[in-house]
Every structure is written in C-alpha cells, then in structure tokens.
C-alpha cells in the first residue's frame, strides 16, 4: 500500500495535484518544442525532460512571492512554477519580440524575468552561482527576508564560479540555496569522467555547510530538502548545497546526437524511474489522480499549449534595427 507522504510535509491533496500539473505542463511544453523543432519551426531545444520533478518540487518549497531565483537552461519546471507562462516560453522558443526573457536576443532556456525576481541567465555555465550569492549578500545587508535559489548542472559544478560562490556564501552565512541537478551527463561526458567524488553534495564539507543528496525523480523529497534549506537560510544559518539525482532523458539539445556516447538501453532503464510517471502513480494510488482528473488535465494542458504555440508563431520578430537599443542607457 502506498502511504501518504505529502501530508506530513504540510501539503494538501490539492497542492500535490497542482505540483503534478506543473510537472506535466513542463513535460508537455518540452515535448511540443521538439515537435516544432523537428518541423523546422523553432531553431533549438534544450530540454527539462527527466528533471521536472526536482524543478517543480524545489520551486514549490520557495516563497514564490518573495524569493529570488537564478535558474539554468533546463529549468522549465522552475520557471513555470514561478509564474512564467506556456505562452511566454513559446515566445522564447520562437525567439519573438514579445519574449519576456530577452526579446529573442538570447538562446532558448536563458531565463530571466525581473517581475518574477528571476535573474537573467546567460550562456557561460555557472556564472549564475556568484550572482545568486550577491543577491544573498544584498538581502543580508538590507535585512530582507528572502532566499536566493540557484541551480546548475553537475558538470557545471566543476567551474571555478561554483567554488568561489559557495565559499563566499558560506563564510558570510548567506541565505542561498545551491541546487545541482545531476542528470549524469555534461553533453557527452558521463559523471565518472567529470568528478571523482561519490556525490556532488560531498563538496559541502569543504565549505562547512550541509550537503544533501536526494532523489531528483521524487518531487516530495526535493520539496522537503529545499524547504529545510530555505528555513535554514531564513534563520540566518547560511547556505545549503543540494544535489538532485536524475537522468537526462533527451539528447543534450536538439543539435546533439546522444547515440554516439550512450546506449538506448541505459535511456530506457532511466525512463522507468521518470518522476512524471512515478509521481502520477503515487497520486493514482492515493486516489488523488483519478481517470477523469487525468484526462481533464491532459485536455486542458493541450489547449493551453496549442494556444501558446499559435500565439507565439503568429507574433512578430524584433525589428532588426532594434539591435542598436539597450547597448547603453539611452
């Protein structure tokens, strides 16, 4: 028998159903983007598939009215949970002028929205870590009750910025949460060629802060870990390093051919643990996700994504002349 694990975390049935809806929305948006890419309608996709559970689980544990985030390019689940819409994501995918992230100036997945207190991410990986630490320091100086939440891939945790950011945050006990989404690969390079430690979270020891590894396919485990880290941050106890373990279910991007460096069986095996499937099963076992709820949900997501796609496809591109705008203040 499946036991109810969300009640003790303070989550209602309604909450977990909403959490699941967000995960599924992220998945369905991502799947649609691949179709659009293969049809030649959008230039590039970099996927969240396999990481939705950790992304939405984490975002739900934040104060989504107050906290700051610096998500990385796979975080479709994080940005949706924080209030970005499917339409906005599609505007970004089509690189249209109305894209709130960068008006089509950056690659897809480079999220940023001032109104959502989301830092504008850029292409060089891990640069966002010290930025998030700066936000944490600002909060401390201004005595603001906010948490600064930043994510990155496990491969990216080998950049100097990771160390420099975490070290500063730890010395100054800043309200920062660093979540490493370990999906086993950095493009073609498997985990064992990236790091020699057993867990990415082992590195926390060197900073004198807690390091936690959780199952990234389990949104409730991630919710719990991030909630504890947020409580710790708000109590001025300092940063936490969280590693969420999952698997990248798609190639690195729409430009990558993963058959060169990993075999199909490995991917198929990982699909069995896919958080979107296992969490749906959990909700079904508890009778929260009934057949009718599920089909209504799929139907409404399909409509939402259809509308988002139609809108974004018809929207205009930025005027080429606008290239001259915003290089400096005008």
């Amino acid at each position: 028998m499946t036991i109810n694990r969300h009640e003790s975390l303070g989550l209602s049935d309604q909450d977990v159903l909403e959490l699941y809806r967000m995960m599924l929305l992220a998945r369905r948006v991502d799947e649609r983007m691949w179709l659009l890419n293969r049809a030649g309608k959008i230039p590039f996709v970099v996927s969240c598939q396999g990481q939705e559970a950790q992304q939405v689980g984490a975002a739900f544990a934040l104060d989504r009215e107050k906290d700051y985030t610096a998500p990385y390019y796979r975080d479709v689940g994080v940005v949706l949970a924080l209030g970005m819409t499917a339409r906005e994501l599609m505007l970004q995918a089509f690189a249209k002028a109305e894209d709130p992230n960068s008006g089509g100036r950056q690659m897809p997945g480079h999220f940023g929205a001032k109104k959502l207190r989301m830092l504008s991410g850029s292409s060089p990986v891990t640069t966002q870590v010290p930025h998030a630490v700066g936000i944490g320091l600002a909060a401390k100086i201004e005595k603001k009750d906010i948490v600064s939440f930043v994510t990155l891939g496990e491969g990216s945790s080998n950049q100097g910025d990771f160390h420099e950011g975490l070290n500063f945050a730890s010395v100054h006990k800043l309200p920062v949460i660093v979540m490493v989404e370990n999906n086993q690969y950095a493009i073609s390079i498997p985990l064992k060629k990236q790091v020699a430690c057993e867990k990415i979270s082992d590195r926390a020891l060197g900073y004198g802060i807690p390091g936690i590894t959780v199952d990234g396919n389990d949104p409730l485990a991630v919710y719990q870990a991030v909630k504890q880290a947020a409580d710790r941050a708000r109590a001025s106890e300092g940063p936490t390093l969280i590693e969420t373990v999952s698997y990248r279910l798609t190639p690195h991007s729409s430009d990558d051919d993963d058959s060169v460096y990993r075999n199909k069986e490995e991917v198929e095996e990982a699909k069995k643990k896919d958080g979107v499937l296992t969490f749906a099963q959990y909700l079904r076992d508890l009778n929260i996700l009934t057949d009718s709820v599920e089909s209504d949900l799929e139907q409404s997501l399909k409509e939402e994504i259809d509308q988002a796609t139609t809108y974004a496809e018809a929207a205009s591109y930025a005027e080429p002349k606008s290239i001259y705008h915003h290089v400096y203040g005008e």
Binding site: G104, Y317, A318
Partner: peptide
C-alpha cells in the same frame, strides 16, 4: 556595428 552580436533577424544586416 558596435553592439552585442546580432540576434537572428538582425544578423543579415
């Protein structure tokens, strides 16, 4: 021109 590298629609000009 002295701007950040162009987005796709502006690349040609």
């Amino acid at each position: 021109p002295d701007t950040v590298y162009a987005f796709t629609q502006a690349e040609e000009i």
